[in-house]
Protein backbone atom coordinates (compact mmCIF):
# COMPACT_ATOMS: atom_id res chain seq x y z
CA UNK A 1 0.00 0.00 0.00
CA UNK A 2 1.29 3.38 -0.88
CA UNK A 3 -0.10 6.81 -0.19
CA UNK A 4 -0.32 9.31 -2.99
CA UNK A 5 -0.67 13.05 -2.76
CA UNK A 6 -4.44 12.93 -3.03
CA UNK A 7 -4.69 10.45 -0.16
CA UNK A 8 -2.51 12.63 2.03
CA UNK A 9 -4.77 15.57 1.24
CA UNK A 10 -7.81 13.49 2.14
CA UNK A 11 -6.28 12.25 5.38
CA UNK A 12 -5.16 15.77 6.30
CA UNK A 13 -8.70 16.95 5.75
CA UNK A 14 -10.06 14.16 7.94
CA UNK A 15 -7.57 15.17 10.64
CA UNK A 16 -8.41 18.86 10.07
CA UNK A 17 -4.78 19.79 9.61
CA UNK A 18 -4.03 22.23 6.84
CA UNK A 19 -1.18 20.93 4.69
CA UNK A 20 0.12 23.25 1.99
CA UNK A 21 0.00 21.90 -1.53
CA UNK A 22 3.79 21.98 -1.77
CA UNK A 23 4.10 19.87 1.38
CA UNK A 24 1.81 17.07 0.24
CA UNK A 25 4.41 15.26 -1.80
CA UNK A 26 7.16 15.25 0.86
CA UNK A 27 4.57 14.30 3.47
CA UNK A 28 3.44 11.39 1.32
CA UNK A 29 7.05 10.22 1.10
CA UNK A 30 7.51 10.47 4.87
CA UNK A 31 4.32 8.58 5.59
CA UNK A 32 5.15 5.92 3.02
CA UNK A 33 8.52 5.45 4.63
CA UNK A 34 6.81 4.68 7.95
CA UNK A 35 4.01 2.62 6.46
CA UNK A 36 6.49 0.60 4.43
CA UNK A 37 8.31 -0.27 7.63
CA UNK A 38 5.02 -1.19 9.31
CA UNK A 39 4.28 -3.65 6.50
CA UNK A 40 6.43 -6.22 8.32
CA UNK A 41 3.50 -6.80 10.68
CA UNK A 42 2.10 -8.88 7.84
CA UNK A 43 4.70 -11.53 8.68
CA UNK A 44 2.99 -12.28 12.00
CA UNK A 45 0.39 -15.02 11.94
CA UNK A 46 -2.61 -13.55 13.72
CA UNK A 47 -5.26 -15.87 12.34
CA UNK A 48 -6.71 -16.97 15.67
CA UNK A 49 -5.74 -13.95 17.71
CA UNK A 50 -8.25 -11.63 19.32
CA UNK A 51 -7.12 -8.03 18.99
CA UNK A 52 -5.85 -6.63 22.25
CA UNK A 53 -7.73 -3.54 23.34
CA UNK A 54 -6.83 -3.35 26.99
CA UNK A 55 -3.97 -4.53 29.15
CA UNK A 56 -5.92 -4.55 32.36
CA UNK A 57 -7.67 -7.84 33.00
CA UNK A 58 -10.66 -6.38 34.72
CA UNK A 59 -14.28 -5.47 34.13
CA UNK A 60 -15.59 -2.04 33.35
CA UNK A 61 -16.69 -0.35 36.56
CA UNK A 62 -20.06 1.40 36.68
CA UNK A 63 -20.82 4.67 38.33
CA UNK A 64 -23.96 5.28 40.39
CA UNK A 65 -26.47 7.57 38.65
CA UNK A 66 -25.99 10.66 40.79
CA UNK A 67 -25.42 14.27 39.88
CA UNK A 68 -21.94 14.87 41.28
CA UNK A 69 -20.43 17.24 38.74
CA UNK A 70 -21.10 20.33 36.64
CA UNK A 71 -22.57 23.64 37.77
CA UNK A 72 -19.39 25.63 37.19
CA UNK A 73 -19.89 27.41 33.91
CA UNK A 74 -17.12 29.94 34.71
CA UNK A 75 -14.56 27.15 34.96
CA UNK A 76 -15.81 25.58 31.74
CA UNK A 77 -15.50 28.72 29.62
CA UNK A 78 -12.55 30.28 31.46
CA UNK A 79 -10.01 29.21 28.82
CA UNK A 80 -12.20 29.81 25.78
CA UNK A 81 -10.63 31.85 22.98
CA UNK A 82 -14.06 33.25 22.12
CA UNK A 83 -17.46 33.28 23.76
CA UNK A 84 -20.30 35.26 25.28
CA UNK A 85 -22.89 34.83 28.02
CA UNK A 86 -21.60 31.44 29.05
CA UNK A 87 -21.47 30.14 25.48
CA UNK A 88 -18.47 29.17 23.40
CA UNK A 89 -18.40 30.93 20.04
CA UNK A 90 -17.23 29.62 16.68
CA UNK A 91 -17.39 31.01 13.15
CA UNK A 92 -21.00 30.83 12.06
CA UNK A 93 -22.06 27.43 10.86
CA UNK A 94 -24.50 27.52 7.96
CA UNK A 95 -26.61 24.39 7.70
Amino acid sequence: MSLDKATVAKVANLARIKVEEKDLEPMAAELNNILGWVEQLGEVDTADVEPMTSVAEMRLRWRADEVTDGGYVEDIVANAPSGEDGYFAVPKVIE
Binding site: Y87, A89, V90, P91, K92, V93
Partner: peptide
Protein backbone atom coordinates in the same frame (compact mmCIF):
# COMPACT_ATOMS: atom_id res chain seq x y z
CA UNK B 1 -26.98 29.97 14.93
CA UNK B 2 -29.34 32.88 15.54
CA UNK B 3 -27.71 34.66 18.47
CA UNK B 4 -24.98 36.55 16.65
CA UNK B 5 -24.49 37.81 13.07
CA UNK B 6 -21.19 36.05 12.41
CA UNK B 7 -20.83 33.48 15.16
CA UNK B 8 -22.55 30.29 16.23
CA UNK B 9 -22.83 29.78 19.97
CA UNK B 10 -22.15 26.44 21.59
CA UNK B 11 -23.92 25.09 24.66
CA UNK B 12 -22.61 21.77 25.93
Amino acid sequence: HDQHPSMSFIDL
